[in-house]
């Protein structure tokens, strides 16, 4: 279980990489999270998350072409691996089971 652990931010990054479907590189992922989820993402936090996810084998990456906009540096595109996909499904599954286990009255608080 602990090996499969996924932090909240890691989960978001992993999902975003999946959303971008192979076109996700550093800035694109950052922009996507910032727009979609309306939260600030620092380059440092995202970079650490990407590195950790790649280390756990949930992401794989390949280098693209260098562009002038990036000072002649190449982009690294990320893609979700099979293991990554599995862990995402597991997380979703766990959440779903928890939601189903909540008694009706407890969710009902809005109407009280």
């Amino acid at each position: 279980m602990s090996r499969r652990y996924l932090g909240e931010f890691e989960e978001i990054v992993l999902l975003t990489v999946a959303v971008l479907d192979g076109k996700g590189y550093g800035i694109a992922i950052k922009d996507d999270i910032e727009q979609r989820l309306e939260r600030k993402v620092s380059v440092g936090a995202m970079r650490t998350a990407l590195k950790r996810l790649e280390g756990k084998g949930y992401l794989k990456s390949e280098l693209g072409e260098p562009t002038a906009k990036r000072g002649g540096k190449r982009k690294r595109f990320f893609q979700v691996t099979h293991a990554g996909r599995e862990v995402l499904e597991q997380v979703m599954d766990a959440r779903k089971r928890l939601w189903q286990a909540i008694p009706y009255t407890s969710i009902d608080f809005k109407f009280a």
């Binding site: 550093g26 950052k30 380059v43 970079r47 590195k51 906009k69 990036r70 540096k73 190449r74 982009k75």
Partner: peptide, 15 residues
């Protein structure tokens, strides 16, 4: 291992 990519990101953001 990540320098090129990170630096590229930073420069792109900067521009």
């Amino acid at each position: 291992a990540v320098l090129e990519d990170v630096e590229g990101d930073l420069l792109e953001l900067y521009h």
